[in-house]
């Protein structure tokens, strides 16, 4: 089985190196003989097995011994993983060709790392903003926790971004666990090119803030993220939390907070935000919906630092 792996690995390396090309030929010969039910006579399998075992033995006799005895089974496992990977890549390639996204015909295509056409770039503005990095400020945006806390967590989020939505639970746990020890601020970074209408959501949320019900509205927007008719949904959600609809409609229709949202976006751009959510925690940057533990490590460190200073 190791010969199949060797053929792939040496085949790729053989593109650049004549030595590996020779090994790839040996591996091919070995694979060909094996699929025709003959014994591999190049000794390549034996050389690889012994070479790997010899290296492991230097550090751990027991693992080396195990590897030597179960080499064929281990080779099978790696071969299956390799075949699975090749199939997954092939499916991704097919999806990309047919649907324009490696994830296939799903409602929400999500992030596709295979991006030869540069579609991913629409979520980032790092390429658009060439000026110097400017660390973002708290500004006058809605916040939770202790306004006087020295540990500031600034999130740049987009109400229609699934990753921002995913990070919501983590944010809530942070607020719940750290309470007054941190000062959390949500700033708008609507990714309109990818999530059309996200700027309207941000403006609507600011209109809710005007009536002191920002966080209720904020949560509802994320809970209803998949609903497509933005304006209707936003009005319905405003009614749900019993906002003064005359005031809300007047605020929303007059685009009262358009400049405020735009300012947030510009501040995010200057801070080199290229996707949402992006968090800034006292100088450290976290991009994406990371696990709670990742945040915890940084927040604890920042709390220690502020206590010491």
């Amino acid at each position: 089985m190791i010969c199949i792996l060797a053929l792939v690995v040496f085949g790729i390396m053989g593109i650049f190196s004549a030595t590996h090309r020779k090994l790839a030929k040996e591996a091919f010969d070995c694979v060909f003989r094996k699929i025709t039910f003959r014994k591999c006579h190049t000794g390549l399998d034996s050389r690889i097995k012994s070479g790997i075992t010899g290296r492991i033995l230097k550090f751990s006799p027991s693992i080396g011994n195990f590897t030597f005895k179960h080499f064929e089974s281990i080779s099978w496992i790696f071969t299956i993983i390799m075949i699975w990977s090749v199939v997954a890549v092939a499916i991704g390639g097919y999806n990309f060709y047919v649907y324009g996204n490696c994830n296939g015909p799903v409602e929400n295509p999500g992030f596709c790392i295979f991006d030869p056409q540069g579609k991913n770039d629409v979520t980032g503005i790092g390429f658009q903003y060439d000026g110097p990095f400017v660390y973002p400020r708290i500004d006058d945006d809605p916040s939770l926790g202790n306004n006087n806390s020295k540990v500031e967590i600034i999130e740049f989020g987009c109400f229609l971004c699934p990753y921002t939505k995913k990070a919501e639970a983590t944010v809530k746990q942070i607020i719940s666990d750290y309470g007054d020890k941190v000062h959390y601020v949500y700033r708008d970074f609507p990714l309109n090119e990818r999530h059309q209408g996200s700027d309207l959501h941000a403006e609507a949320a600011d209109c809710a803030l005007e009536q002191g019900k920002y966080w209720e509205y904020h949560d509802l927007l994320f809970q209803n993220q998949n609903m497509t008719n933005h304006t209707t949904v936003m009005i319905e959600l405003a009614q749900q939390i019993e906002l003064n609809m005359t005031q809300f409609n007047a605020c929303f229709e007059s685009m009262k907070y358009k400049d405020e949202v735009q300012k947030d976006f510009e501040d995010g751009s200057k801070a080199k935000v290229f996707g949402t959510p992006t968090f800034f925690i006292n100088g450290d940057k976290i991009v994406g919906p990371h696990d709670y533990q990742d945040f915890k490590k940084i927040i604890d460190k920042k709390i220690r630092e502020t206590n010491e200073s």
């Binding site: 012994s50 070479g51 010899g54 033995l57």
Partner: peptide
Amino acid sequence: AISLILNQ
């Protein structure tokens, strides 16, 4: 196999 392992 023995000689190759020793060689390592």
